[in-house]
């Protein structure tokens, strides 16, 4: 069995596509298993960007080698995803923080709780709205450099954590 150069390079492209699919599977497992919205977004943004970059680079190399087609659209897609994926993640996370979704903090929880614990607490809309108001007050106190109020609200947020109950 003799191998051409083009066959070897297209095999490398196929392996890159396989690596990208495995990264996508890992990011999907992280999205399901992690504990709060922010950790889930951490799993979603970084590794899914990596998987798309690996796959589209593989597609680009494959078409370049086997059919000698320089596809500018694939390069444009890679550039676009590389630029816009962090922006989208930041916007979702800012919206989740300002609408008051639950945040896991290590110093507020018991020892031995893990990151990939399932979310099994029923939260109502009222809880989230109250937490959002507290966060807004905390931000205002922080921006005015009002340390007393800031530490007071930090204690309030500590009591708000559901794993302490």
């Amino acid at each position: 069995m003799s191998l051409n150069l083009s066959e070897i390079v297209s095999l490398i492209a196929a392996l890159s596509i396989l690596l990208g699919s495995i990264a996508a599977l890992i990011s999907a497992i992280g999205i399901v298993r992690f504990r709060d919205t922010f950790l889930r977004s951490h799993a979603a943004t970084k590794s899914s960007t990596l998987s798309v970059l690996l796959t589209l680079t593989g597609v680009f190399i494959y078409f370049l080698v086997t059919q000698e087609y320089f596809s500018v659209r694939t390069l444009l897609t890679i550039l676009f995803l590389y630029l816009t994926s962090p922006v989208a993640g930041h916007m979702i996370i800012r919206a989740a923080y300002n609408s008051g979704s639950y945040m896991y903090m290590k110093e507020f929880t018991k020892k031995g709780t893990s990151l990939n614990f399932r979310y099994d607490r029923k939260e109502t809309k009222k809880d989230r709205r109250r937490r959002a108001e507290k966060r807004q007050m905390m931000n205002e106190a922080f921006s005015k450099n009002d340390k007393e109020t800031f530490s007071k609200y930090k204690q309030v947020m500590k009591k708000d954590d559901p794993t302490l109950k």
Partner: peptide, 8 residues
């Protein structure tokens, strides 16, 4: 968003 990235 993750599903969109996978579909690409």
């Amino acid at each position: 968003d993750a599903i969109g990235a996978i579909l690409v």
